[in-house]
Nucleic acid binder design. Structure first.
Lengths: 123, 123
DNA sequence: AGTTTATGTTTACACGTGTAAATGATCGCG
DNA sequence: CGCGATCATTTACACGTGTAAACATAAACT
């Protein structure tokens, strides 16, 4: 089953660094999200059930490690959106942002570089 | 409130052509989604409550018209994803698909053209 | 006028989600 | 050994979602 948005916030902490204890996760995410301890614990348990993280005992507590990689998650999410909204094609998506003037100079420069590299690989 | 995925399917029909009756919507979407009449009616009612569509009486039935535009919806959805996963920037998103080899020749050609056009406008 | 038919409206129900309190288990201390 | 602190696990609860049955209403037909 897919992981929810709140669950993804917890995953984000683990993607930055793992393994981590529930306490450490709370310390990082609690202030920002305004979550209580119980909330983080619940989310961790759901992630365990979904096999998105692994828990390893460390004395009295557990250390959590991601099983689902960030790449997998990003892949799922962005493919979903792409398919639903842009017929599965990337160019229309970029065109959309372009029309909305949401391409920064930096974006444009990077895209240009990216295309250049694709050209080069091409041989 | 945001419209759900099932609701978006109904909106899609209306975005292609509107106004439309519930029956017409069902005819178009029922076979594909394997939905019953009641399902479509429920979704339409939720869309009404969310002010995403407008209903206008036409004799015995209603004709539904979108109030939320496809552009608005696409904008919300894609901005959400972009912010959550790519720090709000487009280039990293494209880079992601590039790494996954999900850029078709056509995508690449179109992206190149797009960048060219941006250049031209630039004067 | 009474019944069928076509629509729309209300209600339902299981499941996921966000959020957390209540409860249980375990370790360290007095 | 019993008690408080520290974790984890279980339970809770309101709300949205997917899916649809049940019910209401009004027009159309006999």
């Amino acid at each position: 089953m897919a992981i929810s948005e709140a669950e993804a916030v917890v995953m984000d902490v683990l993607w930055r660094e793992a393994p981590r204890s529930a306490e450490e996760i709370l310390a990082e995410v609690g202030p920002v999200q305004d979550w209580q301890e119980g909330t983080v614990k619940s989310l961790l348990n759901r992630l365990l059930r979904k096999k998105a993280v692994h828990a390893e005992r460390d004395g009295r507590r557990y250390l959590y490690t991601p099983l689902l990689t960030r790449e997998q998650y990003v892949q799922q999410e962005s493919k979903g959106l792409l398919d639903r909204l842009f017929g599965g094609r990337v160019a229309p998506l970029v065109a959309h942002f372009s029309e909305q003037r949401k391409l920064s100079k930096k974006d444009i420069a990077e895209l240009r570089k990216l295309l250049q590299e694709l050209d080069d690989e091409q041989h």
